[in-house]
Design a protein around this nucleic acid. Structure first.
Lengths: 202, 202
DNA sequence: TTTTTGACTTTTTTAGTTTGTAAGTCAAAT
DNA sequence: ATTTGACTTACAAACTAAAAAAGTCAAAAA
């Protein structure tokens, strides 16, 4: 295995890791397996990443960026704020369908410095996007509220919380199970409708 | 230790167990400690309960009943549906403050037959109560919706989900931490306000 | 000079074992 | 009918050994 540039090789490794992770989950993937997939030696991986955790983190960064940028794309040209919120739900569902199997959080669940910052940053960008959407709604007269930022955060938390709605008992798991996805999405859509109506009147 | 009737003794045991659990958590409490507190032998406990799990389950039943009946009391004479929903949040907060330390779910978290049924029953009674409140709101013209049961379930799930709102990373825990309680309650109140507004208009 | 690698050491995980503590039983006593 | 002391059994934490995976590095290759 050889690539033109250093960055290119780094990307190839990330891609191979992500492929393994989505097939077999991150915790069941060894550095040797990734190296074998790339027909290179394990030592090479350590030339590009300081350690296994560093690789995990880089993968998290990669999919975090995909996750948030796909949502931000939906916010590029808003027609109706309500419709945009529903579109974002759909985008997030597709994302989850693609990546729910990698179970990165099983590993990065430690309250490690970097991971928390990463997650917080994604959350902040989501909050900011949602705030922009609500502010847009206010501007065009779709909504009548005076605290869009606060409401954006609340909405985001409420959508997140509904992940645990479908769970029968308290089998709580950070990584979502594909089976419940549809039911959760339905509840998220319904709550979005009510929430949006709640924003329309003072 | 001796009681007048069998039921009385059973209650005394439950009380002693609950006291231990709320002080030191269920998982750190031994049958011997409970027996010592009651100045009786451990063997006596096994005369009233089939095993440790049976005792745990009986305690869960007891506090489950407290949890739900306190909420149902709030629904007895509703003046405003919105105010009743806010009152229920307050009742739940007080309940959590009292019992958050017992950590029963740490133990009963297994997807055991009985526990799941118990939790489901409490959830159903909550859903039913909330549905009655929303239906009342519809009746007096406070709300304008045609699916109160569905909305009750959604509202219940959304409130439950907000428990996980305050958590920084994904430090998810079935038993709630006292510190976050106030922040969660604030978000629950805010969402209730928006939700209620969302129910007012078609 | 940058990148790769095989051979190496170190660390972590796993499976198996021991052991102390708590769960659970029971015949006898109240 | 209820309680109990003395007992056995079961489980969870603490070790241990072996295996597997992580991580290093000097030498080779590009």
């Amino acid at each position: 295995m050889h690539a033109e540039t250093k960055d290119e090789m780094r990307d190839k490794i990330l891609e191979a890791a992500l492929k393994r992770f989505t097939h077999y989950s991150a915790s069941k993937t060894t550095m040797n397996e990734i190296a074998d997939d790339l027909h290179c030696s394990k030592a090479s991986l350590y030339y590009y990443f300081p350690d296994k955790k560093g690789l995990h983190f880089a993968v998290l960064e990669k999919i975090g960026e995909i996750f948030i940028s796909e949502q931000e794309a939906e916010g590029e040209n808003i027609i109706s704020a309500e419709q945009t919120l529903l579109n974002i739900l759909e985008v997030k569902r597709q994302f989850l369908e693609r990546y729910c199997r990698l179970e990165l959080f099983k590993i990065l669940n430690d309250n490690s410095e970097g991971t928390q910052r990463m997650i917080k940053e994604v959350k902040n960008r989501e909050d900011a996007l949602l705030a922009r959407i609500i502010e847009y709604g206010v501007k065009i007269g779709e909504f009548a509220v005076d605290n869009p930022k606060q409401l954006a955060e609340l909405y985001n938390q409420a959508m997140f919380g509904l992940r645990f709605a479908a769970v029968d008992c308290f089998q709580i798991n950070t990584d979502i199970e594909a089976e419940h996805l549809e039911m959760i999405l339905a509840q998220q859509k319904l709550l979005t409708e009510i929430f949006v109506k709640g924003l329309k009147y003072r």
